[in-house]
Amino acid sequence: MSTETLEQPVVKKQAEPLFSKRRRKFVMDPLDDDNPVTIQVLGICSALAVTVKMEPTLIMSIAVVFVIVFSNLATSLIRNLIPGRVRIIVQLGVIATLVTVVSEILKAYNYEMYKVLGAFVGLIITNCIVMGRLEAFAMGNKPWDSVLDGLGSGFGYAWVILTVAFFRELLGSGTVFDYPVFEKIGLTHIQNNGLMVDSIGAFMVLALIIWVQRTRNGYVEH
């Protein structure tokens, strides 16, 4: 899916190629078999809250990928210096710093979007995916592996929330990226479904995505 996994760079004196099979697994697994949202049940809050329209969802995805990748990298770099007892605070500090950076950038360059996303940018701090990856992966793995793992989880999260947003915007407002799809193809008689704009639509759409995805993978929760 991501292009960088396809190319095999020629690295001479390295025990393991930059994108070995093992490393490719870090990126590919969270996209499907081990998806953070649909299988691991993490990061649901923002997956539902920002997905009324495509555009804020896209911004949110980019922000989350950025925060996961760089917090994974930073934590992995300092993993041997962090005392076990205070690791949660250190991890939260790393995440909060990165989220502050994202929030300030957004405030400076796209204030409209900052208003739309509101508190949910700050809530990336408490996005369980970020915290979960730091705790489960970055604390015990090398920096480059952690970056790949972050990319995988980030994109795994991104495709799910973008799909949810696509259906919610299409059925709830009749648009995609504010482009009036139904109107342009002459289906003007289709009514907008108010439930989709509401929180209830989010739950339902995500439940259906989970259903489809788990049936396809044969994953059953007990």
């Binding site: 509401d198 995500l206 989970i210 259903w211 994953y219």
Partner: peptide, 23 residues
Amino acid sequence: VPDGLKGLGITMIITGLMGIAFK
């Protein structure tokens, strides 16, 4: 419950229905 919906899936649907009640 259908296999694919077990656990998370059906819980989301229930939450949605409860959301309607809270509305």
